[in-house]
Simulated assay, not measured.
Amino acid sequence: MINKLLKTFWFLVLTSWLSVQAQSAGDYQLGSGDTIKITVFGQADLSIETLLDDSGKIEYPFLGQIQATGKTLTQLQQDILAGLKGDYLVNPNVSVTIIEYRPFFIDGEVKQPGGYPFQPGLTVSKAAALAGGFTERASLSKIFIVRSNDPEQASVNVTANALVQPGDIITVRQSYF
């Protein structure tokens, strides 16, 4: 009975983790600071792991430079597939995965401000916990995020339950009471 409960529990944990992964990876746009792995099954010389730099381009065997930043994993996968199909391979099987997301940054009224590795499902509260927690002067109603994908870089007031994205800058302001 306990074994069955444990199996059910771990199944639920795994499926919820996979849904968060799929949700975050499906529409996630790559940016500088992300580390990705490109795998072409059966072709070890075409499988690479690379850090996206500020140029946003990667150097890929046979295809040269490919623009990666601003694209989803699926879009980059399709670009590589289209480039390899025909001239180099008959029916390539390409996979693009994120090895490590670019960091997020948190400053203001947290104990250890700085940059921290992003994790899917990260909220402002969890981000603050990574930074040592809120200080005693922190105002939970004055938390602002500048989204890395916002071209205007607008500072938006959010709650402690707001989801954090890679590259975001979180500022926790001081409470006056």
Rank of each mutant, 00 (worst) to 15 (best):
I2N: 10
I2R: 12
K4F: 14
L6M: 10
L12R: 13
L14R: 11
L18G: 13
S19R: 12
Q21D: 14
A25S: 14
D27F: 15
L30P: 11
D34Q: 04
I36A: 05
T39A: 14
V40M: 01
G42W: 08
G42N: 05
D45P: 01
D45W: 03
T50V: 05
L51M: 08
L52K: 09
D53T: 03
D54Y: 05
S55V: 01
S55T: 04
S55D: 04
G56S: 00
G56A: 00
K57G: 09
Y60L: 06
Y60Q: 08
Y60G: 09
P61S: 07
P61R: 07
F62I: 00
F62N: 02
G64D: 02
T69G: 02
T72K: 14
D79Q: 11
L81G: 08
L81T: 14
A82E: 08
D87P: 15
N91E: 08
P92Q: 01
V96M: 01
T97A: 09
I98N: 01
R102W: 00
P103V: 00
F104V: 11
I106A: 05
I106S: 02
G108A: 00
G108W: 01
E109N: 00
E109D: 00
V110S: 03
K111I: 00
Q112P: 00
P113F: 07
G114Y: 03
Y116H: 03
Y116W: 02
F118L: 01
P120N: 09
V124Q: 07
V124A: 09
A127P: 02
G133P: 05
F134Y: 12
F134E: 05
R137S: 13
R137N: 14
A138S: 06
S139Q: 09
S139R: 12
S139W: 08
L140R: 13
L140Q: 13
S141H: 10
S141C: 07
F144S: 12
I145Y: 07
V146W: 05
S148E: 10
N149G: 08
D150Q: 10
A154E: 04
N157L: 11
N157C: 03
A160K: 11
N161T: 10
N161V: 07
A162F: 02
A162N: 05
Q165I: 01
Q165Y: 09
Q165R: 11
P166V: 07
G167Q: 02
D168I: 09
D168E: 09
I169E: 14
I170D: 06
I170W: 04
T171H: 12
S175N: 12
Y176A: 10
Y176Q: 13
Y176L: 14
